[in-house]
Amino acid sequence: MSESLIRTRPTVAVFGATGHTGRFVVAELLRRGFRAIAIARSAEALAAARFPEPDVLCRCATVEDEGSLLRALNGAQAVINCAGPFLDTADALAAAAVKSGMHYVDISAEQASVSRTLETFDEPARQAGLVLIPGMGFYGGFADLLVTAALGDWTSADAIDVMIGLDSWHPTRGTRVTGERNKAPRMVVAEGRLRPLALPSAQKHWDFGEALGRQLVSEMPFSEIVLISRHVKTSELHTHLSAVALSEVRDKGTPAPQAADATGRSTQRFVVEVVARREGASRRAVARGQDIYAFSAPLVCEVVKRILRQEFNRAGANAPGMVLNAEAVLAALQPDHLALEIAAA
């Protein structure tokens, strides 16, 4: 492809591009026909990543140096932040994005970071006509889209459960670093209000169907609680995660994920089931897929594509279900990345 044609393609910056998920995101952007700007702290890491030029521009920047961020973002229409802990990166990068006049999306599972982004940047982004969506990864925005799609024409629910089933969880280095950094109390919605998770975490068994079977799950809320509660009225909102996954991610001896196919995906399987109940009726959505880290790439890239096409109904800092057509986003991920069922039960 000629240099002139490459320059006319939409450009998306990826901060933390050399990390495990960041590499999936860069590859997915290229697969979709975008030009990418790969941003990392280290020139050595960028060189080792061997991103294809000129489709990918490689630039160095740090969150401590606003000037470096602004220079690195130059020429992009949106930025995807893949560099956790997001408590340390989101503020600086979201501020640089707004100052540069571009949309911002991150994949944070951290409740405190997502809350801060929503509160701090909603008004500046609305005034600039920009969209900021924090938490748009497997943990967070994915469940928000599933809940929004499952609710349909319901504007509220008595209770919503998010059940996350994994057959394993081999954490990346970024996941481990984020876990050590993120010591904020985890929040749930109980009796209609955001409240700290009661400890010890509640446990129960859940049948995830043929894919994963019956599993012991523990209550473990991520950033989806903050996002869903932003626009869905409910008295109870809780997330449970497979106990086997929690055990593995907490074990320092569990190895990092290993590629099992040509795309780099691991063999990890997931099932996410959301159940909303109101006045004796229930609605649910069930999604099945492979590799939570790899899956975050097509998910976040699909959202960015729709933002750049102006397929949103409100500027500002938002949960994805507030501003995007949730069913359309999820449908676009089928069948290559997702198997999905939405039904009234």
Rank of each mutant, 00 (worst) to 15 (best):
S4M: 08
L5T: 06
I6D: 14
G16L: 07
H20G: 04
T21N: 00
R23C: 01
V26P: 15
A27L: 01
E28R: 14
L30C: 02
R31W: 00
R35V: 09
S42Q: 06
A43G: 14
A43C: 11
E44V: 04
A45Q: 14
F51H: 11
R59M: 02
C60V: 09
A61K: 09
T62A: 14
E64H: 09
A72F: 07
V79K: 10
N81H: 05
G84I: 02
A94Q: 04
A95K: 12
M102H: 02
Y104L: 04
V105E: 00
E110R: 01
Q111M: 03
V114C: 15
T120R: 13
G129D: 09
F142C: 06
F142K: 05
V147G: 10
A150S: 06
S156Y: 11
S156A: 14
I160N: 01
V162Q: 06
L166P: 00
H170G: 08
R181N: 15
P185T: 12
V189M: 07
L194F: 09
D207A: 05
F208R: 08
G209W: 10
E210L: 14
L212H: 09
G213M: 10
G213V: 12
G213T: 09
Q215A: 12
L216G: 01
V217M: 09
P221K: 10
L227Y: 11
S235N: 11
T239C: 03
L241C: 11
V249G: 07
A256T: 13
V274K: 08
V275L: 15
R277V: 12
S282I: 07
S282L: 01
A285K: 02
V286G: 00
G289W: 05
A294N: 07
F295E: 08
L299D: 11
V300H: 02
V300P: 05
V303T: 08
V304K: 00
F312C: 06
G316I: 10
A317P: 08
A319V: 04
A319P: 11
M322E: 08
M322A: 07
L333W: 10
H337A: 08
A339C: 01
L340C: 03
A345T: 14
